[in-house]
Amino acid sequence: MNTLAQTSAPYVPWNKGKLVGQKAPLRISEIWAIRVRLEIFGRLRDLALFNLAIDSKLRGCDLVRLRVIDVCHGGQVAARASVVQQKTKQPVQFELTDGTRKSIACWMATAGLRNGDFLFPSRITGSPHISTRQYARIVHQWFEEIGLDSTAYGTHTMRRTKPTLIYRRTHNLRAVQLLLGHTKLESTVRYLGIEVDDALEMAEQTDA
């Protein structure tokens, strides 16, 4: 008799009872609801983090490791920046809108950050910058504070939001691919959650 089979616990799928799949992007109204709330309550770090997450379209692992020097040139927050992605080892460029630059500058001045410092240092001893887990907790708090079901959203919501808005306005799949730093168009198709036939049609129109 196989005693191991008798004593081992029954298999339970890791995703049982959990909402999995692509996390929903934010709507314009939801972006502003979070942004205004952070401004009203003077949460300068969170405001800079939120704005930069939306503009940069970076994965959480890349966002939390940004240093001041990555987004600043000559003591000023730059209009554009470029970082090498940890996952793909490929560089990706992103824009920093005026509101984002102002919020970052305000946070840097308040926190007394210098060029070599991490942009979002951790408050936990021994950790140089906030972790991806800390970032996830912060992000879920933003969603919950404006009444969103946080199980439907996540850190990838921040990465997907602006590309989704850009795609809806322009249908320029190639532009979104470049902004996300994807090496394959198929990755962008899956990421946006659009139909393959529609994606190919848009791509053909873009290349024409």
Rank of each mutant, 00 (worst) to 15 (best):
R123Q: 12
L63C: 00
S103F: 07
P91G: 01
I34Y: 02
G75E: 07
A105W: 06
G60Y: 05
L44G: 08
R65D: 03
D98K: 15
V92A: 04
R80Y: 12
R114H: 13
A48D: 10
S56G: 08
G74Y: 03
D46P: 12
V139Q: 01
F41Q: 15
R45G: 11
K57G: 12
P121E: 03
A79C: 11
S56A: 13
L66R: 07
S122K: 08
D117V: 01
R59N: 12
R59C: 11
L66H: 06
A109S: 09
N115H: 12
G116N: 14
E39F: 15
I54E: 04
Q134E: 10
S29V: 13
T132W: 09
I54F: 12
F50L: 10
V83S: 09
S131A: 02
R45E: 06
L63W: 02
C61K: 15
A109C: 07
I130D: 06
A111I: 03
Q90M: 12
G126P: 10
S103G: 03
Q85A: 07
R137A: 14
V83Y: 01
E39Y: 14
H73T: 14
Q85L: 12
A105M: 10
S56L: 10
A24V: 04
G116R: 08
F50W: 02
C72W: 13
T110F: 14
R114G: 01
G74D: 07
A111H: 03
L96S: 05
R45M: 10
I138Y: 00
T125L: 10
A48F: 15
R123N: 08
G99L: 11
F50M: 08
L52E: 05
V68G: 02
I104K: 02
P128V: 01
A48Q: 14
K89Y: 09
C72A: 14
R67W: 01
K89C: 02
R65T: 09
V36A: 12
V68W: 03
F50A: 02
R123V: 01
G126E: 03
G74N: 07
V64M: 10
F120G: 01
Q93F: 05
G60N: 10
G74C: 04
L49Q: 09
N51S: 07
T125G: 07
T88R: 06
F118Y: 10
W32L: 14
L49P: 06
A111K: 03
L66S: 06
G74H: 05
L66G: 05
T100D: 02
M108R: 05
P128M: 07
Q134C: 02
P91Q: 07
E95T: 12
R35T: 08
T132P: 00
L26F: 13
S29I: 13
S122M: 03
K89R: 13
S82D: 04
A24C: 05
K87H: 03
L119W: 00
I31A: 00
